[in-house]
Amino acid sequence: MTRAAHPEAMAPPKKGPTRTAPPQIPGSWWGAPRIRTYLLFGATGVVYFLAGTVVLHLVWALGKGPDAWAKVMDDLSHPLYLAFHALTLISVLFVGIRAFGTMMPKMQPRGGPLPVLAPGLVRGLIYSAWAALTLVFSLILAGKI
């Protein structure tokens, strides 16, 4: 009842002359609700770049002397600067929550000597450490420590 299978049955695919259409991605990929968080994540890089230029400007003013420093401090109280700092803070919080809330719990090493903790516990530990460090640095900057 049986007969021999084709000699090349289950053979690995050979490179042949089959013409294929090039790979495509959906035209609306950027509009998918799921990917917007990722795009926002990437877009915060622009905010950090601008924040970096502000820091460089501060360093430059520090080197120029007290007058330049006072002028920069005065400039930084402009509403546009304050809005930019608020945007930077939001960006930092967004990236921090995404990185520490989503990424870190998943990245726990498996199979090693350390136990794999529940994601919620990891998030709680990281956020607690984050809050504690923010408090310490804030107190240092405020001259309280």
Binding site: P13, T18, T20, A21, P22, P23, Q24, I25, P26, W29
Partner: peptide, 21 residues
């Protein structure tokens, strides 16, 4: 309904999986 994105299209909704393999 479209074939899987990022893969070459062999025919209609069938994609070439050789790259993945």
């Amino acid at each position: 309904i479209e074939p899987l994105a990022n893969f070459p299209i062999v025919r209609d909704l069938v994609v070439d999986m050789d790259g993945f393999m």
